[in-house]
Amino acid sequence: MTTDITIADLDHTYPGATTPTLRRVSLEVPAGTRTAVLGPSGSGKSTLLSIVAGLSTPTGGDVRLAGHSVLHQPPHRRDLGVVFQRPLLFPHLTVAENIAFGLRMRGTDRAAIRRRVTELLDAVALPGYGERRSGELSGGQQQRVALARALAARPGVLLLDEPFSALDPQLRGDMRALLTELHRREGSTTLFVTHDRDEATDVADTVTVLLDGRVAQHAPPADLFRRPATLTVARFLGGAGNAIPGTASAGHFDCPLGRLRLDTDHRGAGLLLIRPAAIVVGDHPGDNVVPATITAVTDRGTHLDIQATSGGVTLQLTTGPAAPLRPGDDTPLWLPPAHLSVVTP
């Protein structure tokens, strides 16, 4: 049983604040899919989640679950589960009682609760932990219990607010895998808030970039890196390493590097963006090969950071650690059209 989430023209300004936290935020999460809301701290992403959960009331706009506006429904009538950054397990209850909480509130019969709790303890790899107190668990274990607790009543919607950012990096990877697995089993429509790019692209099938309370881009993870919508998005995603001014026309971009072929809707003056890792050293049949001179090579151990000039433009690129390149070498560089995008300067 899953539910689609529709967020329509959501506005929110905190009482006493001069600038709005959310401005006209619209977002569609189809039933059974996973969307990550990615943004730096202060972007309004947690506020967005708290509004969907019913813990905050927006100043404008609407939230619809399964087509019905839930704006005036208190959280407990919204058929959702929430996992917060901290596990927030009820300290006066055992692990099993924590997981059973939502079902107990709904008056589910005991045998069914017991079955479901056992099933979920297995699913989050904590079999036999039911009788423990939350204080006896590690941070990662607690967060797994919180996840099981949120899913116990089979909610149509699962909301996660930076659920793994308090865990250490090793554990975070495991938790992402667990979340993907749980989503496959349970199928709840998932809205996931994070400031971590890798986490967003790893867990979600669609990523919404939220900057300054506005939706800056909404795209599948790969597109996000390949085709950032604006310079700001590109900067936030760490993809503004090479920004070359020039003029875009149908299928072309003219700049000091020459005429490059690419596919863009942009017309007129713009900035060409290409990630350092997308530039290929060496010749390549076809278009977009430019002559360049290496000016600096820094060995980072895992890769080389290279600086090159071409047509008076400085380019940043990276290669594998074994590439035989030295400052002063002349080499052609290939700029693959699929990795080129043009944004407004």
Partner: peptide
Amino acid sequence: PVAEHERVAATLGARPRQVLRHVTLPLLA
């Protein structure tokens, strides 16, 4: 942290009275 736990309880489907009985009062006990 009582308020946070109450919020979690509400998202888990507890009605206000249930929140008081099953979360607030036990935490204040």
